[in-house]
């Protein structure tokens, strides 16, 4: 088992959800996933802490979330704590030097993370106070 990404942990929890990473890029992606009935099979990857279209997924049973930007104090961070949905924010790949910087990260940063993680079966480790880990299990 390898830690493939790390980021801010929105809250400390022993919940350690496991699933296939699915990148959600639009409201339609969220609607389709909810309607498919397979929401709980996935760890949801979104671009930012202000990715507001994710809210319906949280309220309908999402098991875990990874974001590529945003802070635990953001709207999504607040929602993840309310729903007690483990969430790793501003995740970066452990084998890459690329880090998110507010207003200074290009598309390549996000593409690299999305392409690396999408489709991977992972487990979220949010047991530490500050750091959340994304662990590859296959």
């Amino acid at each position: 088992m390898e830690v493939v990404a790390e980021g801010y942990n929105t809250f400390e929890t022993h919940k350690s959800p496991r699933g296939v990473v699915k990148y959600l890029d639009s409201p339609q992606d969220v609607i389709s996933l909810i309607q498919s009935g397979t929401l709980t099979e996935y760890i949801l990857l979104v671009r930012g802490g202000t990715t507001t279209f994710l809210a319906p997924a949280l309220s309908t049973g999402a098991i875990g979330v990874i974001t590529m930007s945003g802070a635990p104090e953001s709207h999504l961070g607040i929602l993840s704590r309310e729903f007690q949905t483990p969430c790793v924010m501003t995740a970066h790949l452990t084998n890459s030097d690329s880090r998110y910087e507010v207003g200074n990260s290009d598309e390549a940063h996000f593409d690299e993370i999305a392409k690396t993680l999408e489709g991977m079966t992972v487990q979220l480790d949010c047991a530490e106070s500050e750091v959340g880990k994304v662990i590859a299990i296959s």
Binding site: F11, E12, E73
Partner: peptide, 19 residues
Amino acid sequence: FLEAMSAWQQVDVGGRKVA
């Protein structure tokens, strides 16, 4: 407001944020 909301959800105990 966001800081107050986070403080509502979590308290700082010895440097650790707990519910």
